[in-house]
Design a protein around this nucleic acid. Sequence first.
DNA 1: CGTCGAATTGATGTCATTCAACTACAGTGG
DNA 2: CCACTGTAGTTGAATGACATCAATTCGACG
Lengths: 199, 199
Amino acid sequence: MNEFNFKSYLINAAAISEEQATELYDKLQKKKYEKGSILLNKDAICSNSFFVEKGLLRSYRLGDDGKEHIIQFAPENWFIVDRSSVYFNDPSDSFIEAVEDTEVVLLKENFFATANKISPVFGQFNDKLLHNHIRQMQKRINLLLGATAERRYLSFIEMYPDLLLRVPQWMIASYLGITPESLSRVRKDLAKKNFKPSK
Amino acid sequence: MNEFNFKSYLINAAAISEEQATELYDKLQKKKYEKGSILLNKDAICSNSFFVEKGLLRSYRLGDDGKEHIIQFAPENWFIVDRSSVYFNDPSDSFIEAVEDTEVVLLKENFFATANKISPVFGQFNDKLLHNHIRQMQKRINLLLGATAERRYLSFIEMYPDLLLRVPQWMIASYLGITPESLSRVRKDLAKKNFKPSK
DNA sequence: CGTCGAATTGATGTCATTCAACTACAGTGG
DNA sequence: CCACTGTAGTTGAATGACATCAATTCGACG
């Protein structure tokens, strides 16, 4: 059993009883992916959410300029999914890929909808996830609208300190919307200014 | 009765029966705001959603640089709300302001939750609104990550052609994350390239 | 008619990109 | 075990996109 398994997540974060969580969890499909493998391809219809029990995923898309833009990272205890694709049944415009060897729980598109019939707690919890997602996206928009590369990077460190050590620098740059070269220079400047991300 | 009233919106967009819609609608509070008035202040807790029946609202926040960044426009038939503030009971970090004289329907924070008890259709509809919101935000993030000022502007025209004529240019610039001067130049270039936004 | 904010234009500055070269290092196969 | 290769990261110089600052024009409204 993993340190971060979906069952204890349900109990703790979603306030679901241990019996219900156990019953649900045992029915769910688990899967392992090797580093570098693709969990969702562009143009496919996303029919699962993934809950990460171990490892690290990322979702990204190709911009009109042909460059990768990283949408989200998902380390342990996070969900990742193309919600638009799931909900609207649209072909996805993004990829999901394993950054490390990763173990996930697969949640079919209707997981929360059907679980909601067992207990309304699930519906409420999904609602909470949606709102968290919106809040997080809004923060990101705020940063992209106003902040310099340096402030975006600092805010990234603050929000995802654990990822710093696990994600290659060029992916962080891609997430921030800058080039790897620029990020390298930002880091150099910060070092000069005597900044240490406690690593 | 307005051309765009919440009642017909409920019937058409939310697939709610005419009787239920009528019953609900008559209980709801309506309000008028003059151009320039503030519907929600920063640091206040947002306790309403607003549905615009007539006029135009915008929400915006002040960046760390002290500049306004526009988060959203809401013309007729749109909702506007600081969802994070409503859902998490956080003080809002944004403002909502009337760009034109505007008539709104006020939806208390628990409108959909309580309406859900009348019919699950309301819950489903709110879910749809949340997913639409997420999809729209994702599009915006994609643009901010990759696109030049010009492509952002073109995409704005495509998505909100009606707003072009109603919103002052500096607000569009603010929404796009560029300065009014830059937008002016972008437009000049487009004009030279013989581009006409069919106006 | 005079005032004020919106929009345009020009000159200049700044931040980030681009392109290219170079280093460091991990993985591969001889 | 060592050379070979490819990818990540760094650095420099030139370029480009957008910002800033300042001056001017335009148009709405009292």
